[in-house]
């Protein structure tokens, strides 16, 4: 049985962009003879997402993540292919569909700048047909989860970025959507605010069973929230699977650092792994994950080791390599 809530089939989007040469001549040419170029932003993307899943979208700037998100929520039309979200074609923007979804954009706001968030919340509650009593309850519950209170009655312009983001999330979730499209929800927030937003999203998913599709530049968002990731490069999807297996594929080695009681020579470690560092009795080796247990026990047997540490290479570094190469090879 097909359990998918979101189905994406052969999805493509091509933008027409005007090219302009610099300088006066270029400006005149641009005015009289505008050259349009077709830029493919998304190319034949296929995936499906089950109800309740939290999925992270990974890719460099301009990879096509936000374009896909915009097509999934019905904001823009695909050039070809189709999307189904809960059985709806998002581009039709039927009321039933719009009441099920929400789109949160980290740097865009829907709150009225000069009024307290509470005013915008009341408008949203009315638009989504949430009864006043129920709206009050939802605002209280969400405010508690987001740790926001008196800020809701202060003008938006007086709030900090973190407080504004929390209020934005509240405004986006007042209708209890079951599908959340989040585009950089923690962008620009400090560490504490990022962490609060992350735990809120995890809690919201746990409590409501909502499906979450998230793009973020902060790997911490993805590692904390998304067991599954979709990797996109130049509009093409090249990985769809678990985050852990992605990091295993990208970095099949572990970093083993140990301190020796006595001095040693670099050649002593031939056959144990790739020597990364050798100084002052401290040695670092890169060892394939599948040989890790046997190699570490050999090292412990053959050398007098005072301390030993095993680390994954930093995930940001690993993903950075991925963004640059755009493939798993």
């Amino acid at each position: 049985m097909n359990n998918s809530l979101i189905e994406v089939h052969q999805l493509s989007k091509t933008y027409k962009v005007a090219d302009k040469e610099p300088g006066f001549k270029g400006t005149v040419q641009h005015f009289f003879n505008r050259k349009m170029q077709e830029v493919p932003a998304v190319k034949n993307v296929n995936f499906s997402i089950n109800k309740g899943e939290m999925v992270g979208f990974l890719g460099a700037n301009g990879a096509g993540k936000t374009t896909i998100l915009k097509m999934l929520c019905g904001l823009i039309y695909p050039t070809s292919g189709y999307v189904l979200v809960g059985g709806h074609s998002p581009q039709r923007r039927q009321e039933d569909f719009l009441k099920k979804i929400t789109l949160v954009m980290g740097q865009k706001q829907q709150l009225i700048w000069d009024l307290p968030p509470m005013d915008s919340l009341q408008v949203n509650a009315a638009i989504y047909g949430v009864q006043e009593k129920e709206a009050k309850k939802r605002i209280n519950d969400l405010a508690e989860m987001l740790e926001i209170g008196e800020e809701l009655t202060r003008p938006v312009r007086k709030l900090s970025l973190g407080q504004r983001m929390k209020a934005e999330l509240l405004a986006s979730l007042i209708h209890n959507p079951s599908v959340l499209f989040l585009d950089e929800p923690t962008l620009g927030l400090d560490i504490n605010a990022q962490s609060r937003v992350r735990s809120f999203l995890a809690e919201y998913n746990r409590k409501t069973g909502a499906t979450v599709l998230l793009t973020s530049h902060y790997m911490a968002d993805i590692t904390a929230l998304c067991p599954r990731v979709l990797c996109i490069h130049k509009g093409e999807l090249f990985y769809d699977g678990g985050l852990e297996s992605l990091t295993n594929k990208l970095s099949p080695k572990r970093e083993v650092t140990f301190e020796l009681k006595s001095k040693s020579k670099p050649e002593d470690f031939l056959g144990y792994g790739v020597l990364q560092q050798h100084s002052n009795n401290v040695v670092t080796l890169l060892i394939p994950k599948n040989e890790l247990t046997s190699m570490v026990s050999k090292l412990l047997t053959n050398f007098d080791i005072l301390d030993l540490e095993i680390n994954d290479p930093p995930i940001d570094e690993v993903i950075g390599k991925l963004f640059n190469s755009g493939s798993l090879e």
């Binding site: 719009l98 954009m105 865009k108 706001q109 638009i127 986006s172």
Partner: peptide, 13 residues
């Protein structure tokens, strides 16, 4: 131009 229209387009009004 500033992208404020997008959330309005996704509301049932």
């Amino acid at each position: 131009l500033l992208g404020k229209l997008s959330p309005y387009l996704l509301q049932p009004l």
